[in-house]
Every structure is written in C-alpha cells, then in structure tokens.
Nucleic acid binder design. Sequence first.
DNA 1: CGCGTTTGACCGGCGC
DNA 2: GCGCCGGTCAAACGCG
Length: 287
Amino acid sequence: MENNKMMGVKIQDYASNMESNNYPFFDFSEDKGSLGSMELLGAQDYSPLLDFPLSPHVSGPQTSSVKEPPETKKECSEVTNNNQQPATPNSSSISSASSEVFYDEQNKTVDQAPEHQKTKEQLKAKKTNQKRQREPRFAFMTKSEVDHLEDGYRWRKYGQKAVKNSPFPRSYYRCTSVSCNVKKRVERSFSDPSIVVTTYEGQHTHPSPVMGRSNNFGSVIMSGSAGNYMSQYYRQQHQQVHIDALSSLGFLSSSSSRNATFPQETALLSDYGLLQDVVSSHMFERR
DNA sequence: CGCGTTTGACCGGCGC
DNA sequence: GCGCCGGTCAAACGCG
C-alpha cells in the first residue's frame, strides 16, 4: 500500500479508486484491544471534494459484465476469506476500522416524507412532478468482517442487488423507526473483500434506540448526517478511536495549500455535532 | 405473531 | 425507442 496523503474521494471516483486499491481507509483491526490507534493503510491524493456533484448512482468503470456473486446470502454475518475470526453482528465482535470517504454536500433539498410510508401512487406522482431529490449522503469504508455494522440504529433490509464488476452484492437498508427515512447501503469492496463500504442517506429523526443518549461523550442529539453516523459509529465501536481518527485526518490532510480549520480534540468532545463538519469540510476542503 | 430477510419484479433515469 | 442499471417494492418466507 502506498502511503500518500489521504483525501476524500468523489463518490463517482470511488469505484474506480477501489479498482486500483487507491482508496483511503483506516485499519485498527490490529489494535482491537485498546482501540486506541488506527493505521492508515492506503490512500491517495484525491481530487477535491467540497462541491463534488454526487451522481445519483455510485457507479464505477464498467469494463465487464456483471458476475454472479459467489456469496450473496447472510451478509450480516458474513466472514471474509482473509480472516478467520468469528464474525457476529454484535459490536463487540467487530474488528473494524473506518474513515469516511465522501459526503454528499449536494442535493440538500430533501424529501422529508418517509419513503416507506408512501403509496406507490404517491411515489409515482412525486416522481413525475420532479426529479427525485436525494438526501445528503455520507459514506465511509470500514475494515470489517461483517457487512452490516452495528451503529446503534435498527435497520430493515429492503433490497439486495448484485454490484456491477463486483462479486459482492449491495444491500439496502432502511431505518425501522417510523417517520425516519434514513437509508443505508452496504457493500463490500471488490478489490479488498475485507473492506465494507457503508453509505448513509438522510438523517435520523430520533435518538439511537440502542445507544440511548448517554454515553462517554454525553448526551447527544446529532445534527448533520455525517456526524450523526460517524459519531454514533465511533462512539459505539471505538469510543476513543474517533479522536485519534480525526487527529489522523488532520494529519493526513495537512496539505499546506489548505485552510487549517481542524478543531482541537476537546472541541470535538463538546461540539459533537460538528463532527461531520469537521471531517467533511476538513477532508473536502482541499481543492 | 411480529419482525426482519429474501428475492424476483418493477420502475425511472440515462446513454446510445 | 430501447436496453442497461441502480434502486425500490412487496409477497413469501424464516425465525424467535
């Protein structure tokens, strides 16, 4: 793995970067015990991210026909071939690392009505009236044995599709909470099956049913999708690590041409809601 | 029985 | 217009 600077990737560049293993992510799977550090495994100096136009679909280079996924079932407890540790959907068993990679700053106009509460006709009518607006999306890569990472929310799977040029399927989940229209997609990296790419869309309108609102970082009402998920995720999976992760991000994006707006760790602890801004703006700042 | 998953069908967007 | 593709629906099914 090369050790270039880590930046974000445009979501449309993501797949192609994955093809060449040039995507940023952290790995602290070697440090499961302390959860105190993470290692940048690979990254590249990616193109600017601030105003990247997120394509409606995450699509990579289309060089071949779709291959049938060899393992398309039970991705919630799937064990990848390069790891023999037992994989369970529980957070305690997850050996993972993550760093968010892209965040859709566009398409801020969101459809607030819960998709799953609409009738077909309503959906149809809506779609005919205007182009479908997407929630802000936020994705990150996780080195994990399990596809569906425990993030404190309850999800219901509503679809699965084979991913073009990848043997691994993509799963579609919706938050089970009523009036919460958050969705997420989970797929495994084609080039590195140990990496799971999770893409969140929308914002939770409720606190985490699992986490509640109290943890080491105090009561949290998330604002902003990225912070919502990332904070939630890190608080649960690596309560200490997220600080290191952000520090690493600061280090990684320490290009001299950028504005240095990375806050102090102490600020992060109190200013929880800015995690997404911290990370996103920080990572996406360079252009 | 309730809830979540599976899976084929369907739909809309998009490129040719 | 047609076909491809990503995303979603919904009935059937599984499980606790």
